[in-house]
């Protein structure tokens, strides 16, 4: 399956399409939004004002505009999320791919490494790393990549292993194709949908973890991101003062973005796994007529 075909199928899958529209809206917001709103760090108004015509989402405990902060925050959060998602999958594909393709001792060693990183709890490790590194987006990015790659390496290793046992790869090996060519021409194209869903999963994880780290105060708190928005909301005692508008918009945005990405992944899974597509098809077509006891439904004349 090539990238164009996958994209075309994603456009015809209802879940993937809905997810892509949601994701697209946020990308648009991150790209052009910051130019459309006022300065998010300027102290424009009285602190802790509820939503009004002047400040659509109210003001922060410092008197900044929450709407502007929400819009501007999307840019850094989305950029780091996607970049980290991308790097995680690349790292996972390289390590998992080498392990799965070469097998033997290399695989034993790399699998051990993958498994060790898998059982290591991510957040405490991220905290220790981020605390020692100078605060900033680069620190967040590297910490996310370092703790996030193992899961994808595991998944992609398994896929590479099963692919390299397939006839067409074995045939290429026998005819003396170079390993590089086999990997790029035979194996990678067959991993496209898996890598796509890995990328989306990694991006979801990266956004969540990033927001969590920044919320702890481990990011650069002078930047405007969704994570620092929540950090300041908590720092300014939003709960105690009842200024719910300082954390609700950002949280909703994070959730909607994550939900959109999850929907895309549901769709990609259905495309890559025809069994799932068959399942959702008959569930839709048979509606209530399928029997819980698993017996063959009887529908005179069949269904269209």
């Amino acid at each position: 399956m090539n990238a164009g075909l996958l994209f075309k199928q994603m456009l015809t899958n209802r879940k993937a399409l809905a997810g892509m529209i949601l994701f697209g809206l946020f990308v648009l917001m991150a790209l052009i939004g910051p130019w459309m709103v006022q300065d998010p760090i300027e102290f424009t108004s009285i602190p802790n004002q509820p939503p009004s015509l002047d400040n659509w989402f109210g003001t922060t405990g410092q008197g900044q505009d929450v709407f502007a902060q929400t819009v501007v925050g999307s840019r850094a959060t989305l950029a780091i999320g996607c970049a980290s998602g991308f790097l995680v999958v690349i790292l996972g594909a390289v390590i998992g791919g080498i392990a799965g393709y070469l097998g033997g001792r290399t695989d034993d060693f790399l699998s051990l490494l993958i498994n060790i990183f898998l059982v290591m709890p991510g957040l405490p490790l991220m905290v220790v790393l981020a605390a020692w590194l100078p605060p900033g987006p680069l620190t967040i990015l590297s910490v996310l990549v370092l703790t996030g790659w193992a899961w994808h390496a595991r998944v992609l290793r398994a896929q590479t292993m099963s692919l390299s046992q397939r006839d067409f790869v074995l045939a290429a090996k026998v005819t003396g194709e170079s390993s590089l060519r086999i990997v790029t021409a035979e194996i990678l194209p067959n991993m496209l949908s898996l890598m796509t869903s890995s990328f989306i999963g990694a991006t979801i994880y990266s956004i969540g973890a990033q927001v969590g780290l920044e919320f702890l105060g481990l990011g650069d708190i002078s930047n405007v991101t969704w994570g620092t928005n929540l950090y300041w909301a908590s720092n300014d005692s939003a709960l105690l003062l009842g200024s719910w508008w300082t954390f609700v918009p950002t949280g909703l945005c994070i959730a909607l973005l994550g939900f959109g990405l999850t929907l895309i992944n549901f769709g990609v899974d259905e495309i890559a796994n025809p069994r799932l597509a068959t399942e959702s098809l008959w569930v839709r077509k048979l509606k209530g007529r399928a029997t819980v006891d698993g017996s063959t439904p009887v529908i005179e004349g069949g269904v269209r």
């Binding site: 969590g212 949280g251 999850t262």
Partner: peptide, 26 residues
């Protein structure tokens, strides 16, 4: 599944803030 996927997309701590705000403070 879609409902829980939406709920799962909220950061844990944000959900905690909301829940505490509504059921604790409110």
């Amino acid at each position: 599944p879609p409902l829980l996927a939406l709920l799962g997309a909220f950061p844990y701590f944000w959900m905690a803030m909301l829940v505490l705000f509504v059921f604790g403070f409110g």
